[in-house]
């Protein structure tokens, strides 16, 4: 469904941006004593809109195939877990973000980063818990590990969006 919304004309754009997100997720961000890799789904939703869904699917497919993370069998679930929060971020926080400026845009950006991670963490735990009760304790641990990620993601997404609003506002408003 989301694929149909993507014009052929916009494929190069969506592809180059999804490649950029793929690279961005390789950056390790230090938080306290450890470091995390960002998911950036909040940011992707805000910039790509509906195109975020196929972009996330492609990025996950490449991770699964070339790095062995995740796996092909859970690709569908994973895409949903990451893309749904992306769309929600775009829908809920997008309008407010576009109207804001200065410190407020930093705050809205940070909120979208945090929201994306929290929703994804919740969905991942839910899908682990639902698939088999064996995974339930592990799901709780997974949820706990999302806390530092949320901090880093909120901070970095906030600054990225504030920067983009100043430098290239057309990037955030270019949906459909």
């Amino acid at each position: 469904m989301a694929i149909r919304r993507l014009d052929f004309d916009r494929i190069p754009q969506a592809a180059v941006l999804s490649a950029a997100f793929f690279i961005a997720s390789l950056v390790s961000v230090p938080v306290g004593p450890s470091s995390v890799h960002l998911i950036l789904n909040g940011l992707m939703g805000l910039i790509l809109g509906w195109a975020a869904v196929p972009a996330i699917l492609v990025a996950l497919l490449m991770q699964a195939v070339f790095f062995g993370y995740g796996g092909l069998l859970v690709l569908g679930v994973n895409t949903l877990n990451i893309a749904l929060p992306a769309l929600l971020c775009a829908g809920l926080l997008g309008p407010a973000l576009r109207r804001s400026s200065g410190r407020a845009s930093l705050a809205w950006g940070a909120a979208s980063g945090a929201l994306g991670v929290v929703l994804t963490g919740t969905l991942v735990s839910l899908s682990l818990g639902l698939s088999s009760s064996d995974y339930l304790p592990a799901a709780k641990v997974v949820l706990a590990t999302y806390a530092p990620l949320m901090v880093a993601e909120a901070a970095v997404t906030g600054f990225t969006l504030a920067f983009l609003l100043k430098v290239a506002p057309e990037l955030i408003t270019l949906q459909e």
Partner: peptide, 28 residues
């Protein structure tokens, strides 16, 4: 040097922003 502080997060945020801006131009 990446550390766990505001400076790092801002720099990385701007780095990602710049990467996205350049990608958009390239895609055009």
């Amino acid at each position: 040097v990446a550390g766990s502080n505001r400076h790092t997060w801002r720099s990385l945020g701007w780095l990602l922003g710049m990467l996205l801006v350049r990608s958009l131009e390239r895609s055009r």
